[in-house]
């Protein structure tokens, strides 16, 4: 039997998924199972008999490694103050309980995000216009500061001065937005 994911390596893992009472068989090699592990876990977690095996894949740090202080930290219960979901529960069900979970588990999440999103852990897309208003401004200021540095490096001082004025204007806007928000 060849792995149905890569069609190359022999399939060593066989498992079944139950969809509406009907069985679907899966044959995967270990490499593909590991790669697809979190996907199966997150999309269909409860339906997979291989579930427990895959749940292990989510634990990025091996449980019994490192010094005793780390081991102690691992055992500490991390729990969301808003929805009371613990980190352990999150790993088990593969779903967050609320927006605050992201803050609560913020130290544990980056490696998980990197595994799920081809090595990425920071957002690089749309920023909502209204609630993200000041984020837009801050990003613009960052970009302009970068530009100003380049102008100075190229000895284009007139351009640099104009950019500096622009930055000051945006910083003022940002400050007044903050005051309004408070």
């Amino acid at each position: 039997m060849v792995c149905q994911e890569c069609n190359q390596r022999p399939a060593t893992l066989h498992f079944t998924k139950i969809v509406n009472g009907e069985k679907a068989e899966f044959q995967l090699c270990e490499k593909c199972a590991a790669e697809k592990g979190e996907m199966f876990m997150f999309n269909n977690g409860q339906n997979y008999s291989i579930h427990n095996l895959l749940a292990g894949l989510l634990n990025v740090q091996p449980a019994y490694q490192g010094n005793s202080q780390n081991a102690f930290q691992n055992e500490k219960v991390i729990q969301c103050p808003n929805c009371s979901m613990t980190y352990k529960q999150f790993i088990k069900v593969g779903r967050f309980g609320c927006a605050e979970c992201y803050e609560t588990f913020s130290e544990q999440l980056p490696p998980i995000f990197r595994r799920l999103h081809s090595g990425n852990e920071t957002h690089n897309g749309k920023i909502p216009a209204r609630i993200g208003g000041s984020i837009h401004l801050r990003k613009n200021i960052e970009d302009l500061k970068q530009k100003m540095k380049e102008f100075i490096a190229n000895e284009e001082f007139e351009e640099a001065a104009l950019t500096r004025d622009e930055i000051r204007k945006l910083e003022k806007e940002l400050n007044s937005a903050h005051e309004e928000g408070e």
Partner: peptide, 17 residues
């Protein structure tokens, strides 16, 4: 929404955009 990881979703496979 948070600045670092974008739109917050129930499943971590959808976070960001």
């Amino acid at each position: 929404f948070n600045e670092k990881v974008g739109f917050l979703t129930s499943c971590p496979t959808n976070v960001g955009t």
